[in-house]
Amino acid sequence: MDVATAATGPLWLQLYWLKRCDLPVDLIRWARAAGLRALVLTVDAPRVAFCPRDAANGRT
């Protein structure tokens, strides 16, 4: 069963701010064509912080 069929409410897309300006535009166009009714834009992290624990574990 796909998500749209199983959903009990309006479909929406959460979009994070990306460095590539063309990709969000394409995703928004896809969402509109797919019938999604809301867009949630997350902009709460303007920059990813350096985390020594992640660096020690090889995650960059």
Rank of each mutant, 00 (worst) to 15 (best):
A55D: 09
P52K: 03
W12E: 14
Y16E: 10
T42R: 15
L13H: 03
D26P: 06
L18E: 08
V25F: 09
L11P: 05
L15P: 08
R53F: 04
P10Q: 09
A55N: 06
D44S: 10
F50V: 12
R47Q: 13
A6S: 14
V3G: 01
A55M: 13
A33I: 07
L36V: 02
M1C: 15
P46N: 01
A33W: 11
L39G: 11
A45F: 00
P46R: 12
T5G: 14
V48N: 02
A34L: 05
A4S: 03
L23A: 02
A34D: 08
A7C: 03
R20P: 00
A38F: 00
G35Y: 09
A56Q: 11
L36P: 04
V48H: 07
L18T: 04
L18G: 01
W30I: 05
T5H: 09
W12A: 15
G58S: 11
V48W: 14
V48P: 05
R29G: 06
A38E: 00
L13M: 15
W12Y: 15
T8H: 12
R32P: 00
V48I: 05
V48K: 08
L23D: 04
A7M: 07
L23Q: 14
L39M: 01
R47E: 06
V43N: 08
D26C: 04
G58I: 01
P24F: 03
K19R: 08
T8Q: 15
L36W: 00
D22E: 12
T5W: 06
A6L: 10
C21I: 07
V43W: 00
C21R: 10
L11S: 10
A4V: 08
A56L: 05
P52E: 04
R29D: 12
V40S: 11
L15G: 05
R53S: 05
W12Q: 11
C21P: 12
T42Y: 09
P10V: 08
N57A: 15
G35R: 13
A38I: 01
V48F: 13
I28E: 00
A55S: 09
A33D: 11
Y16H: 08
L41T: 08
L27C: 09
C21D: 13
N57E: 07
L39I: 07
D44H: 14
